[in-house]
Design a protein around this nucleic acid. Sequence first.
DNA 1: TTCCGGTGTTAGTCATCGTTAACTTAGTCA
DNA 2: TGACTAAGTTAACGATGACTAACACCGGAA
Lengths: 189, 189
Amino acid sequence: MSTEGATPTRREQILAAAAERFARVGFHGVGIDDIGKAVGVSGPALYRHFRSKDAMLAELLTGISDRLLHGGRERVGAASDPEEALHGLVRWHVDFALRNPSLITLHMRDLDSLPEPDRHRVRESQRSYVEVWVEALCRARPALEPATARATAHAVFGLINSTPFSAHLDEGQMAELLDHMAHGAIAAA
Amino acid sequence: MSTEGATPTRREQILAAAAERFARVGFHGVGIDDIGKAVGVSGPALYRHFRSKDAMLAELLTGISDRLLHGGRERVGAASDPEEALHGLVRWHVDFALRNPSLITLHMRDLDSLPEPDRHRVRESQRSYVEVWVEALCRARPALEPATARATAHAVFGLINSTPFSAHLDEGQMAELLDHMAHGAIAAA
DNA sequence: TTCCGGTGTTAGTCATCGTTAACTTAGTCA
DNA sequence: TGACTAAGTTAACGATGACTAACACCGGAA
């Protein structure tokens, strides 16, 4: 979940608990006291670590979209040809979604609960991430028009992001299934 | 949206407005007054038509899941061979998603805001709908194991349900793109 | 030892929101 | 005409929930 290997700090504990609950019940469905109870402190103690409940959501969402974007750029940068770049992107998104199902749910569902300044920032990252995909798609399949490539990217996201709703198979099988399906879908676009 | 051709009744106006707003801001993010204002009445007038705010969500969600299920069964019943059944299902889901983007969003996002008795009912319908797909998938592709077929179905739903997030292309192109991608994804499963 | 910043606690405030109450108005039918 | 019903209105109630205030504790530096 987090990049820390050792015992997570309070902030991280709180963020993890908040993410899980936000993903399950939705941002507005979770109370401050719920989150507090989840980490063993009661209620308003969270305000020692975050300015507001919105700030927790903001940190989560900006974190997710930034990680997605940077990871995507890395994969494309490390690839030596367009086809490999596309495979890297698919693998990257699949891994991320499988490893962070609640973050993915959050990212899809609760962006509109975020107040304006941060929401814009997250939208920017999302847009950039989509553009990374669109460029990779167009390079790997020159027959694709950019508009179609954009719709294709969204559809592939939807396909991969379905993970939190299924999760019957074990992680390895699931990763391979989603990988294959994503490439099948792209090939058919 | 609704099956009525003529002027919609008040109930239907309210439901339509509620669906749109629920889909945009989430169930908990919408107030009774907002919905009232959207249909030209102010606030508590809605209680002449619905027992509660929850009841609106319940009617919307049960309606969606029932329509999906029955439509799916119809398509399968009208098909003369497994391959045709699968095509019918894909076409049906794509059409539904394109025609009712806010209902799709709702269906994915706000089920957990529904209090228990109705939520169970909706979950039942959803489960049955998935089973319709699983059966069709296994019949058309006997190599597929049921568990894999289930994950495949969820992934295809995710792919098709991405419509509300893209919608750059016009409806015809979008329908064809999603249709092809869905079959490509299934073929690769 | 003393002081202080970090981290809790509980109690209280204030706004929001779903819901109900009490009342009005328009249309329908005996 | 006059009563009943359907469908509105505004005002108030009660609960919930985010946030603040006031206070307690504790560990480490001066």
